[in-house]
Amino acid sequence: VTLFVASYDYEARTEDDLSFHKGEKFQILNSSEGDWWEARSLTTGETGYIPSNYVAPV
């Protein structure tokens, strides 16, 4: 399981994006799509795309 933590807050801009807060942890589901990764929030359980430059490895 690949875990990352949010370095910043992010507000979703499309329905496919995932909003999150600094400190929130994610399981990365797919990182092969470039700068936007499909992730599941371990806080909310929601799945969506997050900007990879807003998160760091745990």
Results as ranks from 00 to 15, higher is better:
V1A: 12
V1C: 15
V1I: 12
V1S: 12
V1E: 12
T2N: 11
T2K: 11
T2G: 11
T2A: 10
T2I: 13
T2S: 10
L3Y: 13
L3R: 05
L3A: 06
L3M: 10
F4A: 08
F4W: 15
F4M: 09
F4P: 00
F4L: 04
F4E: 00
F4G: 04
V5Y: 08
V5H: 04
V5A: 07
A6F: 02
A6V: 03
A6P: 01
S7Q: 15
S7R: 14
S7C: 15
S7T: 15
S7G: 08
S7D: 08
S7H: 13
Y8L: 10
Y8Q: 12
Y8N: 08
Y8H: 10
Y8G: 07
Y8T: 09
D9R: 04
D9V: 03
D9S: 09
D9N: 08
D9I: 03
Y10D: 00
Y10V: 01
Y10F: 09
Y10M: 02
Y10I: 02
E11V: 14
E11M: 11
E11Q: 13
E11G: 05
E11I: 13
E11P: 04
A12W: 03
A12T: 04
A12E: 02
R13L: 11
R13G: 08
R13H: 09
R13Q: 14
R13N: 09
T14G: 15
T14C: 15
T14V: 06
T14Q: 11
T14F: 15
E15C: 14
E15I: 11
D16M: 14
D16G: 15
D16V: 13
D16W: 15
D16R: 15
D17M: 14
D17E: 15
D17P: 01
L18F: 08
L18D: 00
L18M: 13
S19F: 02
S19H: 07
S19Y: 03
S19C: 05
F20G: 01
F20V: 04
F20C: 00
F20M: 09
F20A: 01
F20T: 03
F20K: 00
F20S: 00
H21I: 12
H21T: 12
H21P: 05
H21L: 12
H21N: 10
H21Y: 11
K22E: 07
K22F: 06
K22T: 07
K22Q: 08
K22R: 10
G23L: 03
G23K: 02
G23D: 05
G23F: 05
G23C: 06
G23N: 05
E24K: 02
E24T: 08
E24A: 05
E24W: 07
E24I: 03
K25W: 13
K25I: 15
K25Q: 12
K25S: 07
K25E: 08
K25R: 11
F26N: 00
F26T: 00
F26G: 00
Q27E: 14
Q27T: 09
Q27G: 02
I28N: 01
I28C: 04
I28F: 03
I28E: 01
I28P: 02
I28Y: 02
L29F: 07
L29C: 08
L29P: 04
L29V: 07
L29E: 04
N30G: 09
N30Y: 07
N30W: 08
N30L: 06
N30R: 08
N30H: 07
N30Q: 08
N30I: 07
N30T: 08
S31V: 10
S31Y: 13
S31W: 13
S31A: 13
S32V: 10
S32Y: 09
S32I: 10
S32D: 11
S32G: 10
E33I: 11
E33Y: 11
G34V: 11
G34D: 12
G34I: 10
G34F: 09
G34H: 11
G34C: 13
G34M: 10
G34E: 12
G34S: 12
D35V: 10
D35W: 10
D35G: 11
D35Q: 10
W36K: 10
W36F: 10
W36D: 02
W37M: 06
W37N: 01
E38V: 15
E38R: 12
E38D: 04
E38W: 15
E38Y: 15
E38F: 15
A39Q: 00
A39F: 04
A39R: 00
A39H: 01
A39S: 02
A39P: 00
R40E: 05
R40I: 11
R40D: 00
R40Q: 08
R40S: 04
S41H: 06
S41L: 07
L42R: 02
L42Q: 06
L42K: 03
T43E: 14
T43F: 09
T43R: 13
T43S: 12
T43W: 11
T44F: 03
T44E: 00
T44D: 03
T44V: 02
G45D: 05
G45V: 02
G45T: 03
G45N: 07
G45I: 01
G45S: 05
G45Q: 06
E46L: 15
E46C: 13
E46Q: 14
E46Y: 10
T47G: 03
T47Y: 08
T47R: 10
T47A: 07
G48V: 03
G48E: 01
G48T: 02
G48H: 03
G48I: 03
G48F: 05
Y49D: 02
Y49R: 14
I50T: 01
I50N: 01
I50D: 01
I50P: 01
I50H: 00
P51M: 06
P51K: 06
P51R: 07
P51D: 05
S52M: 09
S52L: 05
N53H: 12
N53I: 10
N53E: 10
N53Y: 11
N53S: 14
Y54L: 13
Y54F: 11
V55Q: 03
V55E: 02
V55F: 09
V55M: 09
V55G: 03
V55C: 05
V55N: 02
A56S: 13
A56K: 14
A56D: 08
A56P: 03
A56C: 14
P57C: 07
P57N: 05
P57W: 06
P57T: 05
P57Q: 08
V58K: 05
V58Q: 08
V58L: 13
V58W: 13
V58D: 09
V58C: 12
V58A: 09
